[in-house]
């Protein structure tokens, strides 16, 4: 019998619940059910990183997580990065450094980079590139993205 599943979870610090089919990915649930469309789909097989969210403190590609697996988990999406009306230093740095062009990969990069800076405030360039290798950008050549993360790292620690 095909029945939807009730999922209770926490998204961006707020309790959330939704009904989904087991075959729906967390990405689909966020976008199509919860209308959190800031998380993007680029490949649906874990290789572009546009759908990056944090799940219980780890970054994951939400296309490779089932919505039902969010039961009891804590999820953070791009919509939960700014502090109220105040942009996160990474968001500011992305704007100041012109680290986005089309912007489709930007939410994934910011969520991923924030997870890095949260655990390592002073990453080297090599470390930033390693950490972000699961996030593809086709517009910038990454130069300004890496610089924005470096700049935000300085701001975060100030």
């Amino acid at each position: 019998m095909e029945r939807k599943v009730h999922v209770q979870t926490t998204i961006n610090g707020e309790p959330a619940e939704f009904l989904c089919e087991p075959r729906q990915s967390l990405l689909e649930c966020l976008r199509d059910i919860l209308n959190l469309t800031g998380t993007k789909e680029g490949c649906n097989d874990g290789n572009c990183g546009a759908c990056t969210v944090t799940m219980d403190g780890r970054i994951v590609t939400s296309c490779l997580v089932l919505g039902v697996e969010a039961e009891g988990a804590e999820i953070t999406t791009i919509e939960g990065i700014a502090r109220g009306n105040e942009l996160h230093p990474l968001q500011k740095a992305f704007l100041e450094e012109a680290a986005l062009q089309c912007g489709i990969c930007t939410p994934g990069f910011i969520v991923a980079a924030k997870a890095l800076l949260d655990q390592e405030p002073h990453p080297t360039e090599e470390r930033i590139r390693w950490w972000l290798a699961n996030n593809l950008c086709r517009c910038t050549g990454y130069d300004k993205i890496v610089k924005a993360v470096q700049k935000a790292a300085q701001e975060v620690t100030l």
Binding site: T39, E79, I104, P107
Partner: peptide
Amino acid sequence: GADKVTGRALYGADIQ
């Protein structure tokens, strides 16, 4: 810029 770093910017697939 602000729309694009906060996930508010609406791309084609985002329309509901």
